[in-house]
């Protein structure tokens, strides 16, 4: 019997060799705007909670609570800004990849042949800047598929068209 061989294929396409593109710079504005809106609502709730509960039951801690809350907001913004340049994507002939994350760096690749459907989405602020989000779904757990936020709508449509052609053709 011929021994089974599993020699390494020398020219295996290497994902680390391709150049990942950053998402649109404008998208940082959208992100900041979005977060800002959330925080306005969150601050209102937090303010009400602190005034009604904390100041009455343990007034000596009110300052601490505000301090922690503000620190939290600042760190979220800082993280967003630091993390922004790490959001990168790449499209090859047969798959699509996305990288992101500051403390936990993630990279995910979805082969076109496993894609079930594609969605393009525009948020309120994204629409102002003519940006969109493209998501691809596989048969796996949908929360773990790939999503590229903050590319121009044109580009998103192009990618969608490209993938559809690859799948069907």
């Amino acid at each position: 019997m011929i021994q089974f061989q599993n020699n390494e294929i020398i020219n295996l396409p290497d994902i680390t060799e391709i150049i990942f593109k950053k998402v649109e710079k404008k998208y940082l504005k959208v992100l900041l705007l979005n977060t800002f809106c959330y925080f306005i609502i969150a601050s209102l709730l937090f303010f009400l909670f602190t005034e009604k509960v904390i100041t009455k039951k343990m007034p000596e801690y009110t300052g601490v609570f505000y301090f922690v809350f503000i620190l939290f907001i600042i760190s979220v913004f800082i993280l967003l800004i630091i993390g922004f340049p790490k959001r990168k994507f790449a499209i090859r002939d047969k798959d699509i990849s996305y990288k992101s994350g500051v403390f936990i760096e993630k990279m995910v690749t979805v082969p076109f042949s496993r894609i079930q459907h594609i969605e393009i989405e525009e948020g309120i602020f994204s629409r102002l800047f003519k940006l969109a989000t493209i998501s691809v779904f596989t048969a796996g757990d949908s929360s773990d598929d790939l999503e590229i936020k903050g590319i121009t709508k044109e580009k998103a449509l192009q990618i969608k068209e490209f993938i559809s052609q690859k799948i069907n053709g």
Binding site: M107, R114, D145
Partner: peptide, 14 residues
Amino acid sequence: KIQNIKLKQTIFQK
């Protein structure tokens, strides 16, 4: 049968 592949690296792992 794999649908997609992901790498996850915390800063401690990095």
